[in-house]
Amino acid sequence: MRQILSVLVNNQPRVLARVASLIGQRNFNIESISVGETENPSFSRMVIVTRGDLPTITQVAKQLNKLIDVIQVEQLEKEQTVERELMLIKVEVPPDKRTEITGIIEPFRASIVDVSPQSLVVQVTGEPSKLEAMIELLRPYTILEVARTGITAVARGSVKKAAVL
């Protein structure tokens, strides 16, 4: 089962390496991991997407908690979580086809963030499934490069308290 963990960590050098190393060491897998500073510059938040049943995920969380630089581990429930990922996708598009692209990306509320004579960079945000759909639609054109941030997520405002593991 897909699981999302939100991990508050000390904003220390190598903290990402510690977390990633631990997950590898314990034979858990990572689907994606994203990290950034929080409103308090002493802390960063990592959002880790992994797969496993409940005992596995509890074990991941407990092992993470043993890292000195980990402050708190929360499990985010799919239905009660806002999940977003940002993707930049560079497509080879001759000038005459640009309007076609605009038509494709509009329903995705994606935007063109860079234009050059033979290519475009499209920026799209959303859940991973949306990003994948976008890739499929652009595949008929030549995709030159894809860069994705990995999931970041927060519990919805209606959630009183996320499950602290």
Partner: peptide, 14 residues
């Protein structure tokens, strides 16, 4: 050595 010993120490410091 801090990288090497990450998985075999309770914690380490540079």
């Amino acid at each position: 050595i801090t990288g090497i010993t990450m998985p075999i120490t309770k914690h380490n410091y540079l």
